[in-house]
Design a protein around this nucleic acid. Sequence first.
DNA 1: GATGAATGAGATTTCATTCAT
DNA 2: CATGAATGAAATCTCATTCAT
Lengths: 207, 207, 207, 207
Amino acid sequence: MPKVSADHLAARRRQILDAAGRCFARDGFHATSVHDIVRESGISAGLVYRYFTGKDDMIVAIVSEWHEQRRAVMEASTVDFDDLADAYLGLLRSIGDPSARDGLRLGVQVWAEAVRSPRIGDLTRAGIDGPRGSLAARVRSAQRNGEAPADLDPDALVRVFIAIYQGLVLQTVLDDGLDREAFVRTVESMLDAVIRRPPPSAGDGDR
Amino acid sequence: MPKVSADHLAARRRQILDAAGRCFARDGFHATSVHDIVRESGISAGLVYRYFTGKDDMIVAIVSEWHEQRRAVMEASTVDFDDLADAYLGLLRSIGDPSARDGLRLGVQVWAEAVRSPRIGDLTRAGIDGPRGSLAARVRSAQRNGEAPADLDPDALVRVFIAIYQGLVLQTVLDDGLDREAFVRTVESMLDAVIRRPPPSAGDGDR
Amino acid sequence: MPKVSADHLAARRRQILDAAGRCFARDGFHATSVHDIVRESGISAGLVYRYFTGKDDMIVAIVSEWHEQRRAVMEASTVDFDDLADAYLGLLRSIGDPSARDGLRLGVQVWAEAVRSPRIGDLTRAGIDGPRGSLAARVRSAQRNGEAPADLDPDALVRVFIAIYQGLVLQTVLDDGLDREAFVRTVESMLDAVIRRPPPSAGDGDR
Amino acid sequence: MPKVSADHLAARRRQILDAAGRCFARDGFHATSVHDIVRESGISAGLVYRYFTGKDDMIVAIVSEWHEQRRAVMEASTVDFDDLADAYLGLLRSIGDPSARDGLRLGVQVWAEAVRSPRIGDLTRAGIDGPRGSLAARVRSAQRNGEAPADLDPDALVRVFIAIYQGLVLQTVLDDGLDREAFVRTVESMLDAVIRRPPPSAGDGDR
DNA sequence: GATGAATGAGATTTCATTCAT
DNA sequence: CATGAATGAAATCTCATTCAT
């Protein structure tokens, strides 16, 4: 009785999503045909529609999963490193990982789709707001502990560093000539200057 | 001899490109049909093909023009303001201009297309490299003049500020809740800390 | 030796045919998918094909059964009532029975399919010819007994009353506003006038 | 400037509708594919969708037109003949016209679709109610003039004769062996008996 | 020059049916 | 026996592009 195992079903779904992810990363959502995904996955056209109600459903699944992965990476980073700045720099460095390539390309497509589709826009806002909120909370906590200057606007600060992350993703994907390490070192010096900066006054140190 | 004045031809072309720009900004390149552009422009389908060889040609024209406009804005900024940092901050602030909305949305679509199409990728790299190079040159010149710390990597620094620009465009377009002024102020404080920062100690005393 | 009782097999077949009948009555033969029947019956797709060679086979079975049921009702009517006209009027009245609804709707679909499919056409002609023939025989017998005017064409007469039956089925199914009782009374008065009509003039009979 | 003439557009639409009518008459609405209509009409697939929003739209157009044609025939009949009964008998006889074949077959498909589709059901009820109402009005007027017995229910009477019409259409289309002339003569004798029946008075004997 | 009717390849999705489990 | 996952052909509809007028 081939009510096949849940594992099998999950594996099939994965097979389709992986193929879709590759196709979408390569060509974007609207220049990829369902047939492209069928070909890439090695699965028949009909079967795809037992796992997804349609192409839009696949896009939603891919986008959700993409944000979930980013969130997981973020979380892992901030657990591994106890210093938030180090965690962030690690995150930037991980962008260079060749295995991340497809994920980056997909991310750019996700942003483009988020701009035009309310549905994907909502998913994307939700996917960014979560990490953004928890980062801001950590900045606020660092401010309370005196580890960060009290005059910084935590929300804006986090947004700026997210922007740097987004821009780096974009430049990585667009431009092979990018010297990522120099980029990260520059960001590091900015972090040092802004967050770990010495108390503003002169001669404070000797007291 | 042309049967119609060059002005007329240019105006027609403009009419089509404006319509295409609006459509592409709204829906991206591949979810916009030529018929959408025909409808938006009020020009007949056949005529569109006398001004462009096809949809790809329109995309190329729109992308080229988009980069040209960015370059022009950049140039204008750095002429208006004699201080580079002020010019940059002005550029960031101009992102909030409601009249820029379509341009921002289009930019996100351009990036997404640049990732998948070699042709658009080349255009985009060229479009970014120009401004990037001239900015880096100006940073180097500032370093020579002692207006900026000599230990900064000019190329990386420019890339970081371009990344911030790109990220702000993205966040502006995705998220209505963004407090752009706080964002820019935070960037300003970073610029102050990194570029306009006081020479590292010694010599402070003279104030 | 069968692994499963004949009863079981028959019950399964019934289960499928009942579901198919409901689906076909609701949506016609070609707007009903096999999957619809699978869903409605609660039986798996694979199993359906062990009872029927395909969708066409189900259609044939449903149509045969439908004609068989009509024939049975006809037969029952003419047994219950010893007067043929009363039997017919009872038949017309039974059309209003709410439990007959699906059967009527199915009938209309059968007629439509009979028109386009030679196979179903043959089945339908056979299904109608039987009752038609036996009704005509009874009319002829009534004529011989002097219970019906001799100048009537028995075949045509029967066809007319079948037509009235068919038209009433159609109108019942199409039009909720139909006053069926008035319809049947009118038919009754026609029957009286045509079949039970008084000998054309007094004293004619004895010549 | 090929904003082609209105005549041309109308002719194209006709070309498609004629092809669709033939296909639908032959195979019903749901066993006819759009491609069948494309092939039958000799028009390209894309063009069909400039004249109709989709297959459903073609079905609606065909059904509307079918009812309109019936109505026109009805009207013509009752103008040509000043006696309503003669007009009706002429209508029945016209069913045998070989050129009417497709129309009859289409009618059966229309009835089947009217049963399952609310949209077509509404169209069909509207298409029948018009002629039905005007026939009933004429019967009532005949009753006032003493040309028809006052004890008949005009609405029910009309419904019965519509049923006869419908049944004859069905039998004509299903059964080549039908002796239509005998059928019509029988209906005629019924009309005579019911409508033109002699006043039930005494004094018949003198004939 | 300008139009928009016309094309047919290709997109998405559904269907009847089979077969491994 | 029974299941429902799997198939791939076919259905409906859209698209970029051409060309007669």
